[in-house]
Simulated scan of single mutants.
Amino acid sequence: MADRKSASDETVVIKKYANRRLYNTASSAYVTLDDLARMVREGVDFVVYDARTNEDLTRQILTQIIFEEESRGEALLPVQFLRQLIGFYGGQMQGVLPGYLEMSLDNFSRQQEQIRSQFTKAFGATPGAGLLDEMARRNMALFSEAMKMWPGFAAGAPRPEEPPKAAAGGDDALAEMRRQMDEMRARLDKLSKP
């Protein structure tokens, strides 16, 4: 695919024109926000510049991609999180929060990769039969400890709990994982309501 980084790992430049069209200079083709979202998922590094002023628009375009993804139905960001995030704008923690969020997401990504790696090594292991429970317990503990650092988050942070043991059968483990996800959604919904 022409959108991918070149052998020299150069950043792809996207130009945004006055007619709101986005032009990928690496592939010499117009692209959409969906194309840019796909590039992000594929690990392609890109920057977006205004074609006329050469202003860096990367942050605005990435935010627009998030908005588009959120408006399609399956929301990733809970309402309470968005409210708290907006509350940090203009405050004392505005300078610290971006680094904290980036570090948290990097840690989360590394843990997900460890899970995939452990499943691969333990060929035949049933997903959710212990590894996911342990990772969920560890993530909740880390999350709770991290949220204690932020006064606005501490009151609403969920407490780490001992998740129920998943059954050994594949269907039972999948049902247990779905049940746990439903519980997490219910908790997030509860936190997002005033």
Rank of each mutant, 00 (worst) to 15 (best):
Y30S: 02
N139D: 06
F153A: 14
R138A: 08
I61S: 01
L36Q: 01
G91V: 01
L132D: 05
A29N: 09
D182M: 08
K5Q: 09
A18T: 07
E102N: 11
P163L: 01
L57D: 04
K190A: 08
V13S: 04
G130V: 03
S117H: 11
S28H: 15
V31G: 08
F108M: 04
Y23W: 12
S104P: 01
V44E: 12
A141F: 13
V48M: 04
G152I: 09
E145M: 02
A146R: 04
R110T: 14
E42Y: 06
Q111P: 12
A125W: 12
F67S: 10
G99K: 08
E183T: 07
G130I: 02
A155I: 08
K190P: 07
M135V: 04
E176W: 05
R110K: 10
A75E: 08
S6A: 12
L105W: 01
V96A: 07
G130E: 09
L62N: 05
R52Q: 14
D45F: 01
L191Q: 15
N54G: 00
T25R: 07
N139F: 00
E55I: 07
P194W: 04
Q180A: 13
E134D: 01
R138P: 05
Q180Y: 10
G169L: 11
D3A: 01
V47Y: 06
W150N: 09
